[in-house]
Simulated assay, not measured.
Amino acid sequence: MSREFIEGFISVYRENPCLWQIKCKEYTNENLKARAYDNLVTYCKSNGYSNVNRDFVMKKIENLRGCFRKEMRKVESSKTTGTGSDDI
């Protein structure tokens, strides 16, 4: 997957706070979430991925969130090791 695809996927994901913002009142609205997932599926299909479904999108989101958490742990652990701010 190209960098442009991932950046676009993340931007569409961020436009739908019902998928990621827990304190948002729409977070519990299943119909709104279904439409948001459909938006992501449509985005994927419009970029050349023909066999995309909701499961693919959910796995992609979990993958991105996992990578983010992994990188955050690396940054946090480098802060506690006593390295300089240039090495973070």
Rank of each mutant, 00 (worst) to 15 (best):
F56G: 01
Y27Q: 03
F56V: 14
I6H: 07
N39M: 06
S11W: 05
C18W: 02
E7W: 05
Y13W: 15
N31H: 08
E7H: 12
C18Y: 00
I88G: 05
E4C: 01
V75L: 13
Y13S: 10
G82Y: 08
S85Q: 11
R69C: 02
Y43A: 06
T28V: 04
K59F: 11
P17E: 09
R35A: 07
K23Y: 01
F5H: 07
S11P: 04
R65F: 01
K60I: 03
L40N: 04
F56R: 09
S78G: 01
F9E: 12
A36G: 05
T81C: 14
C67S: 13
K25Q: 10
R35W: 02
N51F: 04
Y27H: 13
V12M: 09
E71V: 12
M1Q: 10
L40V: 08
V52W: 10
Q21A: 08
K23S: 14
E26A: 13
K33D: 06
G48P: 05
S85G: 01
R73W: 03
K25W: 05
V12G: 03
E62V: 02
T42W: 05
D87F: 02
G8S: 09
C44I: 00
T81H: 06
Y13K: 13
L32M: 10
C44R: 06
S50H: 07
G48A: 03
W20T: 06
S46K: 12
K33E: 10
N51L: 06
T28S: 11
R54F: 01
S77L: 12
F5G: 04
K25E: 10
E26K: 14
T42Y: 09
V75E: 04
Y13H: 14
K45Y: 02
L32N: 07
Q21G: 00
W20V: 04
K59S: 14
A34S: 14
F9P: 13
N63W: 11
P17R: 03
W20S: 04
R14P: 01
D86Y: 07
C44L: 14
S78E: 08
E76M: 10
E4G: 04
C67E: 15
F9K: 13
Q21N: 13
K70N: 09
E4P: 00
R69L: 12
V52S: 08
Y27F: 15
G82V: 03
E26I: 00
Q21D: 14
Y49S: 04
